[in-house]
């Protein structure tokens, strides 16, 4: 569904991505792992067009989406849940969802209903301002907003970051259901979460793809985890 070849991205004079390569097959959860500063978030932002890549190739459903503005990329069917959630704090949960809707048709409202069944916490907070939500609720809203339109591919950047364990569990359960319908590219530092959801993984280091394999392999190989991720 998504194929990234030799992605090179600069932020000002810094060469952040120096040849990232990976593939996201349809119907799977592909996880990008790596230490802090490896280029995981920049990779996501480059795919979306928020930090445009200088060279390389990003193919989505066979078409090159390199250098497209973010709104065009999103319209092609890529949903993005950023690391810091970016909830519209002065808008209510309802308004946050409505803002995200590119159409307010029956299918979209049904999708919203489905999202709220995944995240019942959002129902209770329906009329609350985004700025007054807990970290977990913000994460749920951010995922919900990304899914409310037709979204064949969902990019999620560190959904467990800063969340209480109970919220991590809820978000993870929801992602287990979402992955049945939507192809997911997940960036995650929480290895427990990544290993439970992911099917395949890529490890980035210093802006390059350095390792890839089945998630099962990483789960079993402690040496590999120590070497690339610094965790046992």
């Amino acid at each position: 569904m998504l194929k990234v070849n030799q992605l090179q991205t600069y932020i000002e004079q810094f060469h952040i991505l120096q040849g990232v390569e990976f593939e996201v097959p349809e119907g799977q959860v592909t996880v990008i792992l790596g230490r802090n500063g490896a280029g995981k978030t920049t990779t996501m932002r480059s795919i979306m067009g928020l930090t445009p890549a200088k060279s390389g190739e990003i193919l989505f459903q066979g078409k090159n989406i390199m250098a497209l503005p973010p709104y065009v990329t999103a319209k092609k069917g890529i949903g993005y849940v950023p690391e810091d959630q970016d909830i519209f704090g002065t808008l209510t949960v309802e308004e946050n969802m409505r803002v995200a809707m590119r159409k307010e048709d029956k299918a979209t409202l049904e999708r919203q209903e489905w999202i709220l069944s995944l995240f019942p916490d959002l129902k209770a907070a329906w009329k609350r301002k985004g700025g007054n939500l807990s970290g977990g609720q913000k994460q749920m809203l951010s995922i919900g907003r990304a899914l409310v339109n037709e979204t064949p591919l969902l990019l999620i950047d560190e959904p467990s970051k800063g969340l209480a364990p109970i919220m991590v569990k809820k978000v993870m359960e929801a992602l287990q259901i979402i992955k049945n319908d939507t192809t997911v590219l997940l960036v995650e530092q929480n290895f427990m979460m990544a290993s439970r959801i992911g099917d395949y993984f890529y490890i980035l280091d210093e802006g390059r793809t350095v390792y890839q394999g089945e998630m099962e392999q990483l789960r079993k190989d402690e040496e590999l985890r120590k070497k690339y991720l610094g965790i046992s």
Partner: peptide
């Protein structure tokens, strides 16, 4: 209106609105 709500969202975070599929 939907346009007005989108404007308020732009005020808060332009990039986020763009990544939701709206031409800011």
């Amino acid at each position: 209106s939907p346009v007005g709500r989108t404007l308020q969202a732009i005020r808060e975070n332009e990039n986020r609105v763009a990544s939701l599929g709206f031409n800011v």
